[in-house]
Each structure stands twice: as C-alpha cells, then as structure tokens.
Amino acid sequence: MTAPLSDKLQKLEDALEEYLEDYDCTVEVVLGQMILTLPAEQLVEVALILRSHKAFGFEQLIDVCGVDYSAYGQSEWATETASSTGFGRGVDRADFVAEDDPHRFAAVYQLLSIQNNVRLRLKVYAPGNPPMLDSVVGVWSSADWFEREAFDMYGILFNGHPDLRRILTDYGFVGHPFRKDFPLSGHVEMHYDPERQRVVYAEVEIEPRVLVPRVIRQDGRFVSDQVLSEKGGDDA
C-alpha cells in the first residue's frame, strides 16, 4: 500500500489537488488505482472538468456500476469465535436493510483518459429514498445505457436522464434485483398454463439455500504493515 505511485498517477493526483480544491472530494489509492469520492451534488460539475480540462482529458466513460453497501462486511458464519450451533443450510437472513442510510447506494464511474493513458474511478454515494443522482449523459453519451442499468438493478434514479427505462429485466418486472434484500431466486417464476393457453407468472417454489457459507477471514498475509503497527506490532 505504501508503494510509490507511478508517475502518471502522481501527476493525476497533483492535478486533482490543484484543480478540484474548491470541491469537497477525497482521493485515495487502493491497489494502485486512484479513487475519487465526491458528494452527489457536485458530480456533474466535476465530471465536466474531468472530461474537458486538458490536465485530465478523461474522454471515455468506461463503465457505471451501481453498488448496494447494505450488507457490506456481514458474514454468515463466525470465524473468530466458536459457536454452539454450526452452519446450517437454512441461513437466516438478517434484517439489515437501512432504508434511509445515505451511504447505502453508490454509483461507481470508471473513467479512461486515452490521451494520458490513465484511469480514474469516481465514487458517488446516492442519498435519499429512492436514491437519486444527477445524470452524466450530457458529459459522456455512453452513460445512457449504463445509468439505465444501474436504475434497473438498484433503483438509483438519475436526474436529467433522457429516457430512464428498465433495460435488462423483463417488461413489467417489479423490484430491483441486485439489491441485497432481493433474493437470488427472485419472487416470481414463469410457466406455461395449458388451460389459459399462455405463459403465466407464479410465486417462486424453490427454497433459497446456501451451498458455501459466506465467511470473512482476516488473512495474516494481507494485513498491511499499518494495521499491524496500530495493533502494537507484537504479532508482526
């Protein structure tokens, strides 16, 4: 983590500090990739600067990815302490959904500058219920379908989008399937009804089951030097 930044990222970081000091954004580097986190209301302004200013030149929006952080860091099986009940297949899902958490939903924008050959990731948390962000279609045309997808999968609304329809799910679909409180097997299934001679929807019959429990292990090999020194360094 403490490895020196490559020249390009260093240059980008300097430029971000210089030209975006009026904005409320934070820069961090994770695994050698730069992430810029900024508040929702400044998204479009900053996006315009990033695209048009010659110090940045991010002419391509590679991807927009919705994220639902509501189950972040939750595991289904304790690994630190022993428990009297082992892991069963019928895992109870905790009621983790905090409806109004302003940090529940986020949109992550992957930017690419072809002239400078450098990438940047924008992360914006979507506040409100329903979560809402400003659309960047006016800045990058490719945002059109990516934002439609984020809306379809996570229900993030994009203010100013020209045509915010569902894109991947079925006509008349209810719900946003990639949210963490949406079951993997869904709510409805289709089958052909010979009496009515058409395809009908019915409640899903299969029971959700977990084949491999979700566990979080603190692997010693990946613990950074910083964390170890905070601990006191006795197990370093």
Binding site: V67, A71, Q110, R214, I216
Partner: peptide, 13 residues
Amino acid sequence: SDGANKPYRLKVR
C-alpha cells in the same frame, strides 16, 4: 471485496 470468500460486488464491463 469486503474480505469474504465471495465477491461483494462483481461488475462485468
């Protein structure tokens, strides 16, 4: 990744 044995979110571009 949130440190689990499964990805927290995978986005395919």
